Simulated scan of single mutants.
Amino acid sequence: MKIALIGYGKMGQAIEEIAVAQGHEIVLKIGIENLGDFTVEAVAKADVAIEFTSPHSAVANIKKCFDAGVAVVCGSTGWLEQWDEVIAYCQEKQGAFLYASNFSIGVNLFFELNNYLAKIMAPHNDYDVSMEEIHHTQKKDAPSGTAITLAERVLEHIGRKKQWVNHISDNPAELEIISERIDPAPGTHKIKYHSEIDDIEIIHTAHNRKGFASGAVMAANFLNGKKGIYNMKQVLGL
């Protein structure tokens, strides 16, 4: 498989290492120092583009890949207010797109665990629920995309919570997400159910970027040759 890396920071370099070890070819690497090389013609050499950049550039990057007829695996977060626009453009171009707020296999299993726990905790009104997330200081968005995904699943099941907020809250209708930025933390997410009697917590802690990078390469393998819109649940068969 021929891969274009759109975003060549620490994550892009981790993806490159794993992809090359698996026998894939990196045909394009775009970082902050060579943005001029990111052309439709250049990215068209790839089978799949893996896009890990920033909220302000992700949508334009994704669209350019669709213009080139290249499938896109996207791990950038913070741009989802433009989700409908991107999906419509993908369909217009008859492209292939796979987005995940987190590509780690462990995190995606954690998503399922969180969903199940929220479902069984829903009737127990004596438990309040809150969240914490920790990332490195280069993380541009807060809360993280992973935290938002987790929070949305909680809100689906815990009807007494109406919205998430990214600050300490004493409003029982708000799901509190506390974000911390500490180097060199690659990512920790905690969901806590608290009552006067006891606490129930589930925690996922990433030790390095390898889990995210491995999942992104797995997603690219899955997407290669396909058309349409996909997610990590389909990649993992969950």
Rank of each mutant, 00 (worst) to 15 (best):
P186E: 13
K227C: 08
T53W: 00
K2G: 05
R153W: 05
F222N: 04
V59G: 11
N231C: 10
S130R: 14
Q13D: 03
G145T: 05
L80N: 07
H157N: 13
A219Q: 09
Q234L: 11
K233S: 10
S130F: 14
I3K: 03
G159R: 14
P55C: 03
T53H: 01
K64W: 13
A219L: 01
V72G: 02
N231L: 10
Y8L: 06
A151G: 00
D170F: 13
E196Y: 15
T205K: 08
K119Q: 15
S130M: 03
L98G: 02
F97G: 02
E133C: 14
V129G: 04
K190L: 03
A147I: 06
V72R: 01
A220R: 06
I87Y: 03
I202D: 02
G106Y: 02
A220S: 12
K233G: 10
I32H: 15
A118M: 07
C65A: 15
L109G: 06
E196V: 13
E201R: 11
A49Q: 04
S57A: 15
K190V: 11
F97T: 01
S144Y: 01
P184M: 10
A58V: 09
N166R: 14
H157M: 08
P172C: 07
I26S: 01
H136T: 15
M121S: 06
E196N: 13
M218K: 14
N115C: 02
V165P: 05
H24K: 09
L5C: 07
G36Y: 00
N61T: 14
E180F: 09
V73K: 05
E51F: 04
A185R: 06
T146H: 15
Y99S: 02
I87S: 01
G9R: 07
Y8K: 11
K63H: 10
I18W: 05
E176A: 04
I158F: 08
L35A: 11
S169C: 03
L98V: 05
G225R: 05
E33W: 04
E92D: 15
F38Y: 03
A219W: 07
N231F: 04
M11V: 15
S101A: 15
Q82V: 12
V107G: 08
A4M: 06
G159Q: 14
K119I: 03
I200S: 04
